[in-house]
Simulated assay, not measured.
Amino acid sequence: MDEKNFKSGFAVLAGLPNAGKSTLLNNLAGGLLSPVTNKPQTTRQNILAIADGDDYQVVFVDTPGFLKAQYKLQQTMVGCIDRAVREDADLVIFLVDATADYALNAPLVEKLKTVFCPIFLAINKIDLVQDVAVLDALEARIKADLKIEKTFRISAANGTGTDELKQAVIASMPNSPAYFPPGQWTDRWERFYAAEFIREQIFKLYQKEVPYSTFVEIEKFTEDLGPKNYIRANIHVERESQKPILIGKGGSAIAELRKRAQKRIEEFLGRKYRLELNVVVSPNWRNDTKSLEEFGYIVRDEK
């Protein structure tokens, strides 16, 4: 490694829920590191995906979708965004959904005005907009709000424009040694991703409020035991009435969840696992500081 010419840094993805940040992260990093569903607010914590080459290492940071916090869990999600864009970033990629109402971005735009690093604008879902004039007007409106270093029109879902974005991100990174060893693709343990992929399938299988009321806790994780590889996970819900919904009639719903989650985990980890799921009622855990801290969230009181 020629450290004098090596580029390394952190590129933070910021945007509203369902703007496509997780899809873009997976596209840029070349893997399925972040859970992707058609429901907003799937990501709850910052997820790092490391892309490296002979002369660069970019740490892409997927943040939760920016929202107005209504309970303590969402306060921790907003805190993740604040720390990422203000403390961690060498570059912010502001991802805007071309099909959504841009005015909803106003609170996030105010936060982005306070960052000291360059901001790239990525206008996403351009494949769903037929009139180029609509994209031109959106870009002009955003540039009136923020100092934008470079603009990219992309479709994270089909890859349009994402390679150009990635190359520009690499070029913008500061000269620096790598932050992580070559070949490392994330800073998270495998058990974190096992929990994330179980939760991803909960979002895909269940409706309304139930997915948002769940937390997945990995109670046991054994590996390198061949056919005896085993994961036992507790799915925490807030109310007794949610437990039978997750389990389903005769256990049919949780059996389908287990099958799908196990397949996703095995594809990601590259080895077979036996997955066991239990449903636990933890009343009001999303708004309980002690529960949130036990589950690994950083809780900061709002001032």
Rank of each mutant, 00 (worst) to 15 (best):
D2G: 11
K4E: 15
S8C: 13
F10L: 06
P17S: 05
K21V: 11
T23R: 01
T23D: 09
L24T: 07
L25S: 12
L28K: 06
L32W: 00
L33M: 08
V36I: 15
N38Y: 06
Q41K: 10
T42V: 06
T43P: 10
I47G: 05
D52R: 08
V58A: 03
P64E: 08
F66W: 10
A69R: 12
Q70Y: 07
Y71D: 06
Q75W: 08
T76L: 08
I81G: 06
E87P: 04
L91Q: 11
I93N: 04
L95Y: 08
D97V: 04
A98L: 10
D101N: 15
A103G: 10
E110L: 09
K113G: 15
F116V: 15
L121P: 08
I126A: 13
L128V: 13
Q130S: 08
A137D: 15
L138N: 01
I142W: 04
I142D: 04
K143T: 11
E149P: 12
K150Q: 15
I154C: 02
A156Y: 04
N158R: 01
D163E: 09
A171M: 04
P177G: 06
P177V: 10
A178D: 02
P182R: 11
W185E: 14
W185N: 14
R188E: 12
Y193L: 03
E200T: 15
Q207D: 14
K208Y: 11
E217F: 03
E217D: 13
Y230Q: 08
N234S: 14
N234C: 11
H236I: 10
E238Q: 07
E240D: 14
L246Q: 02
I247A: 11
G251F: 03
E256V: 13
K263I: 09
R264K: 14
R264V: 14
I265N: 02
E266Y: 00
G270R: 01
V280C: 01
W285Y: 10
R286G: 02
E293K: 14
G296W: 05
Y297K: 05
D301W: 06
